[in-house]
């Protein structure tokens, strides 16, 4: 028995998120007393043997025109087939958009239990149990399964990445796409240079306190100096000041960055639900009574239009000296 991890790539490139998956799988394999095998799907610009630094013993590379565009059922079927051929009983995915989309099909194809929204390394191996977020991060639950196989989908930024020495052997592998009709992808439209929110390590978010979409320049400047993704509260996206894809909170995207900077957001319970898993929260609000301060690590009472440019300047100075 072994652990298989899907090493996701984007237009042929890996991200830190890929290596977090590798590291998660290696740590899980260590707990189970077995090895962790990586699986890459599609054309690659980068060398996947780097996965060895994170504890992966071997990387399988599936290259086939059938997988040039994403289809949840096709990818799920292929990963299940590779898992079966490798005798893997534990399959690890990161909770990216594609990871979340394919995990259910994978679990059905592999006849495995599915454990999603997992926030840490597995708790125990017998029965296999994990800690997962429930009620939009307002609670946690220990979920266990005595099924013989399982798929684990963890929330990005769930563990601190450690790189060691090593290089994984790379082998090619074949697998079929299953017999479900695929969707036909007509266009992939990624915003260049934009950091996807679910995996962003730092996020700067703006609320109604910013008064209008024309004032987002300072949010973007702060995000740029922090190398952060940009987000917004629900009212801001509902008023179309910012795109839906930036809405973080209970009915938007739930995030788990190292640093979350909230500007002009009062901190309604629905917003806190989506962001309270953040490691460090900085709240900037002119209202000292804003409920968000209770959930914050650092608070600044002040006018966002004065505080944010000062913070950006201070960060630039810090970066110049460090």
């Amino acid at each position: 028995m072994s652990v298989l991890v899907y090493l996701e790539s984007w237009e042929g490139n890996f991200k830190k998120n890929t290596w977090e998956s590798a590291f998660y799988a290696a740590k899980t394999a260590e707990m189970l007393g077995t090895e962790a095998i990586g699986l890459c799907i599609g054309n690659l610009n980068e060398d996947p043997s780097v996965a060895g630094q994170y504890g992966i013993s071997k990387v399988l590379h599936l290259e086939d025109a059938a997988f040039n565009s994403f289809d949840a059922n096709n990818y799920g079927a292929a990963i299940a087939e590779v898992a079966a051929s490798q005798g893997a009983d534990t399959i690890i995915l990161s909770g990216t958009f594609n990871g979340k989309a394919l995990a259910p099909a994978l679990s059905i194809n592999a006849d495995a239990a599915l454990l999603t929204n997992v926030v840490a390394l597995p708790e125990s191996s017998s029965p296999f149990s994990v800690k997962r977020g429930v009620y939009s991060s307002k609670g946690f639950n220990i979920l266990s399964s005595d099924a013989s196989k399982r798929v684990v989908v963890f929330v990005p930024n769930s563990l601190a990445l450690e790189a060691g020495e090593g290089s994984a052997a790379v082998e090619s592998v074949n697998a079929g796409a299953g017999d479900t009709k695929a969707v036909e992808v007509t266009e992939v439209d990624r915003v260049k240079g934009k950091i996807p929110l679910p995996e962003a390590e730092r996020v700067v978010s703006g609320g109604r306190g910013l008064k209008g979409p024309e004032n987002w320049g300072m949010i973007e400047e702060l995000a740029e100096v922090l190398d952060a993704g940009t987000a917004c509260s629900k009212p801001v996206s509902d008023m179309d000041w910012r795109p839906h894809s930036e809405h973080v909170g209970q009915t938007g995207i739930a995030i788990k960055p190292n640093l979350y900077v909230a500007v002009g957001i009062s901190g309604a319970i629905q917003h806190l639900a989506g962001v309270s898993a953040s490691n460090t929260i900085v709240v900037i609000n002119k209202d000292a009574e804003a409920p968000f301060f209770k959930a914050a690590d650092y608070g600044i009472v002040g006018d966002a239009f004065e505080v944010v440019p000062k913070l950006t300047a201070a960060l630039k100075e810090f970066k110049a000296n460090n």
Partner: peptide, 8 residues
């Protein structure tokens, strides 16, 4: 999708 949208 991560960082964008996919039409299909």
């Amino acid at each position: 999708i991560d960082g964008g949208k996919e039409k299909l």
